[in-house]
Design a protein around this nucleic acid. Sequence first.
DNA 1: AGTATAGGACACCATATGGTTTCGTGTCAA
DNA 2: TTGACACGAAACCATATGGTGTCCTATACT
Lengths: 113, 113
Amino acid sequence: MAALPSGKHDVFQAIADPTRREVLRLLVDREMPVTAITGHFAMTRTAVSKHLRILSEAGLVKERKVGRETRYRLEPQPLQELRGWLQYYERFWENKMSALQRLVEAEDGPEGE
Amino acid sequence: MAALPSGKHDVFQAIADPTRREVLRLLVDREMPVTAITGHFAMTRTAVSKHLRILSEAGLVKERKVGRETRYRLEPQPLQELRGWLQYYERFWENKMSALQRLVEAEDGPEGE
DNA sequence: AGTATAGGACACCATATGGTTTCGTGTCAA
DNA sequence: TTGACACGAAACCATATGGTGTCCTATACT
């Protein structure tokens, strides 16, 4: 269930930081080396590198060495855990159900968790 | 767009902590006073109270005073922001698309949001 | 009235987090 | 081979985070 912990940071923690969410956006359509990523932020390369490590621990990015650069790319699969978590709550806001209605749905719901 | 910031903590931060995610689960089907919530955790009432404040700042719970107790209930709407964020990435893991395919999908995508 | 219960406020503490600078190493270009 | 570039590692720093214990007030019980 815990989706192979490649480090001490999980997906929930990884996406908690706005900078890291921006990094993910950057990597959506292309692979990028650290310096290029850093160009998009007002912080040092080292700081960005740390964010990349956390994302990597969460499995959200993968690195590939090409010559002297390390290119990072998005690895979206771990977001499925987040999606699964969210799905549990989705039905609750859809029709602004009451607590009682939620209770019924929760027990009666079409879950396979 | 930033969904009325009722405090300094946002949804992403709020759900980053496992304890807070558990609290949300507890409140799914019923309203609960602080002490009752605390009963489910190995920490003090004060600690739980702080978590509740953070959840409250993120808009994920609402409090209601009843006599001497403060009852908390789930307020799932703010999770929609998370869902919107996630949806952007959903298409990327569905069929393990390549970066190029993702690029095309991202620009050309079948959006109706 | 007097006591017990619920819970917020406050002071405090250890560790995590997000950032910096400096340094070392591997790789590319002249 | 000398130098510039890409990057990680390490030491350091301020603040945030997650927890504690003590105290105070409001409400309920008898």
